[in-house]
Lab assay of single mutants.
Amino acid sequence: DFYKILGVPRSASIKDIKKAYRKLALQLHPDRNPDDPQAQEKFQDLGAAYEVLSDSEKRKQYD
């Protein structure tokens, strides 16, 4: 669930989604977690979630 990945409720605004994405991107970035083999995958999932939820048309289709 993309909302769960970003840690935001379904009613979150685009601004809230962007804020959550930036915070998590810093935490999950593979360069900051060189010892975590799943860091790259988590970071890619985060990017996919943000791409869908930050675009109003894609978000409507997802919901």
Rank of each mutant, 00 (worst) to 15 (best):
residue 29 H to N: 08
residue 3 Y to T: 03
residue 60 K to I: 15
residue 21 Y to S: 02
residue 31 D to M: 12
residue 38 Q to D: 15
residue 60 K to L: 12
residue 2 F to D: 00
residue 42 K to L: 07
residue 12 A to V: 02
residue 14 I to M: 15
residue 9 P to M: 09
residue 51 E to M: 05
residue 32 R to S: 11
residue 52 V to D: 01
residue 37 P to I: 07
residue 8 V to I: 08
residue 42 K to G: 04
residue 52 V to P: 02
residue 55 D to P: 01
residue 60 K to R: 14
residue 33 N to Q: 06
residue 59 R to E: 01
residue 42 K to D: 15
residue 22 R to Y: 10
residue 49 A to F: 02
residue 7 G to C: 05
residue 41 E to W: 07
residue 2 F to R: 02
residue 17 I to P: 01
residue 20 A to S: 12
residue 51 E to D: 08
residue 30 P to L: 04
residue 14 I to Y: 15
residue 43 F to R: 05
residue 28 L to Q: 06
residue 45 D to V: 12
residue 47 G to W: 08
residue 52 V to N: 03
residue 59 R to I: 00
residue 37 P to Y: 07
residue 61 Q to P: 01
residue 35 D to Q: 11
residue 50 Y to A: 02
residue 36 D to E: 06
residue 43 F to C: 04
residue 52 V to K: 02
residue 52 V to Q: 05
residue 41 E to N: 10
residue 33 N to W: 10
residue 8 V to H: 00
residue 48 A to R: 14
residue 39 A to H: 05
residue 15 K to P: 11
residue 5 I to T: 05
residue 4 K to D: 05
residue 13 S to I: 02
residue 7 G to E: 09
residue 53 L to K: 00
residue 42 K to P: 02
residue 53 L to E: 00
residue 56 S to W: 14
residue 59 R to W: 00
residue 57 E to R: 09
residue 17 I to Y: 00
residue 61 Q to K: 15
residue 28 L to S: 08
residue 9 P to R: 10
residue 38 Q to P: 03
residue 14 I to N: 15
residue 32 R to K: 11
residue 13 S to W: 00
residue 47 G to D: 07
residue 36 D to F: 04
residue 21 Y to V: 01
residue 9 P to Q: 12
residue 46 L to G: 01
residue 47 G to M: 14
residue 34 P to E: 06
residue 2 F to W: 14
residue 48 A to L: 11
residue 19 K to V: 12
residue 15 K to V: 13
residue 35 D to Y: 08
residue 33 N to T: 05
residue 46 L to K: 00
residue 11 S to I: 04
residue 10 R to D: 11
residue 22 R to F: 09
residue 5 I to N: 04
residue 59 R to P: 03
residue 30 P to T: 04
residue 34 P to F: 09
residue 17 I to M: 02
residue 30 P to A: 06
residue 56 S to P: 15
residue 28 L to M: 05
residue 7 G to T: 03
residue 25 A to L: 11
residue 8 V to M: 03
residue 5 I to H: 06
residue 41 E to C: 12
residue 2 F to A: 06
residue 9 P to D: 11
residue 19 K to A: 14
residue 13 S to Y: 01
residue 47 G to N: 08
residue 58 K to S: 07
residue 5 I to A: 08
residue 36 D to C: 10
residue 15 K to M: 11
residue 20 A to L: 01
residue 34 P to A: 14
residue 38 Q to E: 08
residue 43 F to M: 08
residue 58 K to W: 03
residue 14 I to R: 14
residue 59 R to S: 01
residue 44 Q to S: 12
residue 45 D to K: 13
residue 10 R to E: 14
residue 6 L to T: 01
residue 49 A to L: 00
residue 35 D to G: 13
residue 31 D to C: 08
residue 58 K to A: 09
residue 29 H to L: 07
residue 31 D to V: 07
residue 37 P to L: 09
residue 8 V to S: 01
residue 48 A to Q: 13
residue 50 Y to K: 03
residue 56 S to F: 12
residue 20 A to T: 05
residue 25 A to T: 12
residue 30 P to K: 05
residue 50 Y to H: 07
residue 4 K to Q: 08
residue 45 D to G: 11
residue 52 V to I: 14
residue 4 K to T: 15
residue 38 Q to Y: 11
residue 13 S to D: 15
residue 7 G to S: 06
residue 14 I to A: 14
residue 5 I to R: 06
residue 14 I to G: 14
residue 3 Y to R: 02
residue 38 Q to A: 13
residue 31 D to Y: 07
residue 11 S to R: 08
residue 17 I to R: 02
residue 38 Q to F: 13
residue 32 R to T: 10
residue 47 G to C: 15
residue 28 L to W: 12
residue 58 K to R: 14
residue 24 L to V: 07
residue 62 Y to P: 01
residue 30 P to F: 02
residue 31 D to R: 09
residue 54 S to I: 15
residue 8 V to E: 02
residue 39 A to Q: 05
residue 2 F to L: 13
residue 10 R to V: 14
residue 62 Y to E: 02
residue 43 F to D: 02
residue 41 E to L: 09
residue 1 D to V: 02
residue 56 S to Y: 09
residue 10 R to S: 14
residue 59 R to K: 08
residue 5 I to E: 07
residue 42 K to W: 05
residue 47 G to E: 12
residue 31 D to H: 07
residue 57 E to W: 04
residue 51 E to F: 09
residue 48 A to I: 15
residue 34 P to V: 11
residue 15 K to I: 13
residue 36 D to P: 01
residue 56 S to V: 14
residue 15 K to E: 15
residue 25 A to S: 14
residue 22 R to T: 14
residue 55 D to Y: 01
residue 6 L to G: 02
residue 53 L to P: 01
residue 55 D to S: 10
residue 20 A to W: 00
residue 45 D to I: 04
residue 42 K to F: 05
residue 10 R to Y: 06
residue 18 K to I: 10
residue 37 P to R: 10
residue 29 H to W: 04
residue 30 P to Q: 05
residue 52 V to C: 09
residue 2 F to M: 07
residue 59 R to T: 02
residue 60 K to T: 14
residue 15 K to T: 13
residue 23 K to A: 08
residue 37 P to W: 06
residue 3 Y to Q: 02
residue 58 K to G: 04
residue 38 Q to T: 09
residue 51 E to T: 10
residue 30 P to I: 02
residue 33 N to E: 03
residue 11 S to A: 08
residue 14 I to F: 09
residue 6 L to M: 15
residue 23 K to M: 14
residue 10 R to P: 15
residue 6 L to C: 05
residue 19 K to E: 13
residue 3 Y to P: 05
residue 39 A to P: 01
residue 42 K to M: 10
residue 13 S to K: 11
residue 25 A to K: 15
residue 3 Y to C: 11
residue 5 I to C: 08
residue 38 Q to W: 09
residue 22 R to C: 11
residue 23 K to T: 13
residue 15 K to C: 15
residue 10 R to L: 08
residue 25 A to R: 10
residue 57 E to D: 10
residue 4 K to Y: 06
residue 19 K to H: 11
residue 23 K to I: 14
residue 36 D to T: 05
residue 62 Y to W: 01
residue 50 Y to Q: 01
residue 13 S to H: 09
residue 9 P to K: 15
residue 33 N to L: 06
residue 47 G to Q: 15
residue 6 L to Q: 00
residue 30 P to N: 04
residue 53 L to A: 04
residue 12 A to M: 00
residue 10 R to I: 08
residue 24 L to K: 14
residue 12 A to Q: 02
residue 36 D to A: 05
residue 9 P to G: 14
residue 4 K to G: 15
residue 49 A to W: 00
residue 35 D to W: 07
residue 46 L to P: 00
residue 17 I to V: 09
residue 62 Y to F: 13
residue 61 Q to A: 14
residue 36 D to Q: 06
residue 57 E to I: 14
residue 33 N to P: 03
residue 21 Y to C: 01
residue 47 G to A: 10
residue 30 P to V: 03
residue 60 K to V: 09
residue 20 A to C: 06
residue 1 D to N: 13
residue 2 F to H: 15
residue 5 I to V: 10
residue 8 V to G: 00
residue 62 Y to S: 02
residue 26 L to I: 12
residue 55 D to T: 09
residue 55 D to M: 03
residue 57 E to P: 04
residue 23 K to E: 12
residue 58 K to E: 05
residue 50 Y to S: 00
residue 42 K to Q: 10
residue 20 A to M: 07
residue 37 P to C: 08
residue 59 R to C: 00
residue 12 A to W: 01
residue 23 K to P: 04
residue 41 E to Q: 10
residue 56 S to I: 14
residue 13 S to P: 12
residue 44 Q to R: 13
residue 35 D to L: 09
residue 7 G to Y: 00
residue 28 L to K: 09
residue 47 G to I: 13
residue 21 Y to F: 07
residue 21 Y to W: 06
residue 15 K to L: 13
residue 18 K to Y: 08
residue 21 Y to L: 00
residue 57 E to C: 07
residue 33 N to R: 12
residue 52 V to S: 05
residue 60 K to G: 15
residue 14 I to L: 11
residue 3 Y to H: 05
residue 30 P to Y: 02
residue 62 Y to Q: 01
residue 28 L to N: 09
residue 50 Y to M: 08
residue 48 A to M: 13
residue 45 D to S: 11
residue 20 A to P: 01
residue 4 K to V: 05
residue 58 K to P: 00
residue 41 E to S: 15
residue 57 E to M: 08
residue 8 V to A: 02
residue 55 D to H: 03
residue 41 E to T: 12
residue 35 D to M: 13
residue 22 R to A: 11
residue 2 F to S: 04
residue 7 G to N: 14
residue 48 A to T: 12
residue 62 Y to A: 02
residue 1 D to G: 06
residue 37 P to H: 08
residue 47 G to H: 05
residue 29 H to T: 07
residue 43 F to P: 00
residue 46 L to W: 00
residue 25 A to V: 13
residue 9 P to S: 13
residue 2 F to P: 04
residue 39 A to S: 09
residue 41 E to F: 04
residue 23 K to L: 13
residue 1 D to Y: 11
residue 7 G to K: 08
residue 26 L to Y: 12
residue 36 D to K: 05
residue 33 N to Y: 04
residue 25 A to Q: 13
residue 17 I to F: 00
residue 50 Y to W: 08
residue 11 S to F: 05
residue 52 V to E: 04
residue 7 G to H: 13
residue 24 L to F: 06
residue 34 P to M: 13
residue 50 Y to F: 10
residue 47 G to V: 12
residue 62 Y to G: 01
residue 29 H to P: 01
residue 19 K to S: 15
